[in-house]
Simulated scan of single mutants.
Amino acid sequence: MARQTKRVSSRKVKRKVPKGVVHIQATYNNTIITITDLQGEVLSWSSSGSCGFKGRKKRTPFASQTAAESAIRRSMDQGLRQAEIMMSGPGPGRDMALRAIKTSGLGVSLVRDVTPVPHNGCRPPKKRRL
């Protein structure tokens, strides 16, 4: 009995996406930039760590600028021209990433801060007694 195997194409399909969403997640230790289309499917992503920065250098504004330029370059190859920007987190690289996106030639239609803010959140821990 001969077993038939399926042939699966492993080539990525380049699609033309004129409008998308840039998600910037800036933590204290790293900056992650993800570019999606309007349905939420990822077109490209980059982070300070994936650009070759290690340790304390990942948190610098220059590292986040490099990550933003890398992600934008890859998504503009897929036809991205206009984008909305969603920023999240308190990290030091968020402003520099935004500046890098604006100077890259990508049209920015909206900048929104989507950092989660607690509405009185969790109960704080007990006071320390010494």
Score class of each variant (00 low, 15 high):
Thr36Val: 10
Gly91Thr: 03
Ala67Leu: 07
Thr115Ile: 04
Asp77Met: 12
Arg56Ala: 10
Ser109His: 12
Ser70Thr: 13
Lys54Asn: 07
Arg94Ala: 01
Gln78Glu: 15
Thr27Asn: 05
Met86Ala: 07
Lys54Gln: 14
Phe53Val: 00
Gly89Cys: 10
Ile35Gln: 06
Met96Tyr: 07
Gly89Asp: 08
Leu80Gln: 06
Leu43His: 11
Val17Ser: 10
Ile24Met: 07
Asp113Ala: 02
Glu84Asp: 04
Ile101Ala: 07
Thr103Arg: 15
Arg94Phe: 02
Gly107His: 13
Arg11Tyr: 11
Lys58Thr: 00
His119Arg: 09
Ser104Tyr: 14
Lys126Met: 06
Asn29Ser: 13
Thr115Gln: 00
Gln39Thr: 10
Thr31Trp: 14
Pro18Met: 01
Arg128Gln: 05
Met1Ser: 07
Lys57Thr: 01
Ala100Asp: 05
Ile33Arg: 00
Gly20Met: 05
Gly40Glu: 09
Pro90Met: 11
Val114His: 00
Thr31Arg: 05
Ala68Ile: 15
Pro116Asn: 04
Leu80Ser: 09
Gly40Tyr: 10
Thr36Gly: 02
Lys54Gly: 13
Gln4Glu: 09
Lys58Val: 04
Gly79Ala: 01
Gly49Leu: 15
Gly105Leu: 05
Arg15Cys: 06
Pro116Thr: 12
Ile101Val: 15
Gly105Thr: 08
Gly52Thr: 10
Arg59Leu: 04
Val22Glu: 13
Ile101Gln: 12
Lys58Ala: 00
Val22Met: 06
Ser50Glu: 15
Ser46Lys: 13
Asp113Gly: 03
Gly93Asp: 12
Ser48Lys: 08
Asn29Arg: 00
Ser10Ala: 05
Ser109Phe: 09
Gly105Pro: 12
Ile101Phe: 12
Pro61Phe: 00
Ser104Pro: 11
Arg73Phe: 14
Asn30Cys: 09
Met87Val: 15
Glu69Trp: 02
Met1Tyr: 07
Leu80Ala: 07
Met1His: 10
Ser44Leu: 13
Thr36Ile: 05
Ile35Pro: 02
Arg7Val: 03
Gly107Tyr: 13
Val111Ile: 07
